[in-house]
Design a protein around this nucleic acid. Structure first.
Lengths: 160, 160
DNA sequence: CCAAGATATATGCGTTTGCATCTAATATAC
DNA sequence: GTATATTAGATGCAAACGCATATATCTTGG
């Protein structure tokens, strides 16, 4: 059993380590010349669209995965639309909403950037961690994300 | 032994999971009303300054930990300076550089925000992970960060 | 069925960010 | 020791961002 203070410290330190690792890797990945064509957030939107079964995502679904406010995503999508990389369409069942989907050009660009990017991710990750470690990291971050998602969805999941 | 394709996929997925977990937790933490007083990046600078032995950090050292460009940090520091939270001073040994340090008001604000923030971090983290899991996460992200730092510092550490 | 509230996205506007570039100071080459 | 290259920050300016709020649609209670 751990003291309350030690528990608190562990939580804070593990979060900070996660944050700094993300910053370090992100900065390294962002050096790729491929990101001159699309900003990393813009790529992230293209990526999310490429990885969804129907090919269409609601604006608010995009918003869950990208660390931007709703208005910023709306305008990011505007810019992608102007460049002919994505399209908007209104869903039949809820005409308040918008569905965003890749155009052919958008899908092609995503694939092109994605290939280079994945290659780079692999170099960075494999330099730091073994396959087994990556597997553990994947599980732990997945678990963390899942519980946070639940927390965010409910008013007061546990006490507070 | 893992196939090359599976290895690549594992690397990409573990990185993505890390990224999304960071986004999810960050968004949750950012809801705290305490961040009305200082933006989370501004707090991050105050935090980094509070956690360094000498009390002074170079601008480029801050830049290593915060995901902003050098000009942006320079201006972020401008704003903090105008608010009386940090001070600039020129180091004797290298008069190109700048040292940034907390003022008393800055240190006080950091402590105040920090307390609430750590409390919140603890709630979020402990809901998702056990102490043992946090420990593992801390180690893996630390290892990852360390190797990326080396990679960033050297021209071509391994092949590429 | 209608009014009141909630939800999904868009838009006005001031602030912050990044890119390119500038200045000042140090390190290197000759 | 002087010229050249390099490094550390600062600054002009256009693009991107967040906050507050507007608009349109859906949902709910009566």
């Amino acid at each position: 059993m751990m003291s309350a203070a030690a528990h608190r410290r562990l939580a804070a330190e593990s979060w900070e380590s996660l944050l700094r690792a993300q910053v370090a890797v992100m900065r390294e990945l962002h050096k790729e010349p491929i990101f001159k064509e699309v900003g990393s957030r813009e790529y992230d939107v293209l990526f999310n669209l490429s990885r969804c079964p129907t090919g269409w995502l609601r604006l608010n679904e995009l918003n869950d995965n990208v660390l931007l406010t709703q208005p910023s995503i709306s305008r990011l999508v505007d810019r992608l639309e102007e460049r002919g990389l994505v399209r908007r369409k209104t869903p039949d069942d809820d005409r308040r909403g918008v569905l965003i989907g890749l155009t052919e050009a958008g899908a092609a660009l995503q694939k092109k950037v994605g290939r280079a990017h994945v290659q780079n991710i692999m170099h960075v990750m494999e330099e730091g961690l073994t396959d087994a470690e990556m597997q553990v990291l994947l599980e732990l971050t997945g678990k963390l994300r899942a519980t946070v998602a639940v927390r965010a969805a409910t008013p007061t999941p546990s006490g507070k």
